[in-house]
Design a protein around this nucleic acid. Structure first.
Lengths: 119, 119, 119, 119
DNA sequence: GTGGTCTAGACCACA
DNA sequence: GTGGTCTAGACCACT
């Protein structure tokens, strides 16, 4: 994972984890990697890893059993909700940005239809 | 203007100024507000204002005549170029984000067609 | 300040600050000590100081202006609310504790009437 | 039993057991549940259960006969003493807490007189 | 081994 | 100067 310098690492990792939950790579109720494992996986410090889970817990994406581990929330609706939230935010940012630049809906749709994925 | 806490203020202001250039609210060759005025307008510190013009100068969006003021570049093509760059970046971010979430082009176009501007 | 080993230091400091707000030693809207100052005052690490303000911000006891400082919330009602919350918690803990031990209300009132402050 | 996350579980259980001794639910000289049973009753780990008896032994609330079990101390005075100690600590914590918040004895007595048990 | 807390020391962006 | 983030390394309580 390459970290963008504009956004704090811990937020980038949270976003990555949320993405994996939406993509089904992480299942509801699943045990997440331990702090120490997460630190290794993402090449970050253990404290940063701890902070990531702390913030995710506040957002109710996961919960913690002391001495046992951190677990993804069981609620399946949460996953759908996260997906929609993330999509909404992307859409809103994109549309207001494009409209600020003077593009109309039709232009935008046209550009998307024309969009090629990068390699 | 409301500042998003995640992105440095000076970048947010630069983006806003670029937007105004694209929208024609700022014309090629036009004199920009002084550091002090900019600081007042955007409710930022004067140092931040100075930095904004410094960065924009580096990007060749404007130039400074000492003792006279800061001026927008005269080149009209530049404006078109900025517009396209910003649009491209918006598009790329949006599409990769949505595709990461599992949306296909058709879903995306559908959602945009359905998009209502906020009041 | 003497730290009790059973409760995390940052929670003890938060409690102390809340107490000072209730006692009027800290006023609504007042600027709080900087992270670095707080660290010195309470003989804690700067990171711990930062965490204290972060948690207090989540609880909406204060808010932060980056590069400027951390400020107590302006809302005066908040102070009264904190006082009542803290008193309620003390009362609840005390009463359930005493009643668990078999004391009745009258015994308890009698003991309080009899209570002498320590030197 | 609901465990408060701020205090170590073993301390919470010890408090609970002391409470039961004071309430007469546990009699002097009585045999206490085995480590395993205690672990099941309180939904804790067996190691934690062992630690609980170890600590209680140190405090001379009980003693262990190897191969037979753990027994509550026979001394009846001990029970009265525990009750008074616990009450004193509750009282002291409560009173200093309330006085720190600015309440006077009369306010406090009034609030207690007004106190309704929760269902 | 797990999460939680704490320290020391550093660097960055912002005012 | 301010707050925010990050690392390295340590200790503790609990399973």
């Amino acid at each position: 994972m390459n970290y963008n310098s504009e956004m704090p690492i811990y937020l980038q990792v949270i976003q990555d984890i949320k993405k994996k939950m939406v993509q089904g790579k992480i299942q509801p109720g699943e045990k997440l990697p331990s702090n120490r494992e997460l630190a290794v996986i993402y090449k970050i410090n253990q404290n940063t890893a701890a902070r990531i889970y702390r913030e995710m817990e506040i957002a109710e994406y996961c919960y913690t059993k002391r001495g046992i581990g951190t677990f993804v929330v069981e609620d399946e609706n949460m996953f759908e909700q996260i997906k929609e939230e993330m999509a909404e935010e992307l859409l809103r940012n994109f549309m207001t940005g494009m409209q600020d630049l003077g593009y109309k809906k039709d232009d935008i749709i046209f550009q998307i239809a024309d969009y090629k994925e990068e390699e």
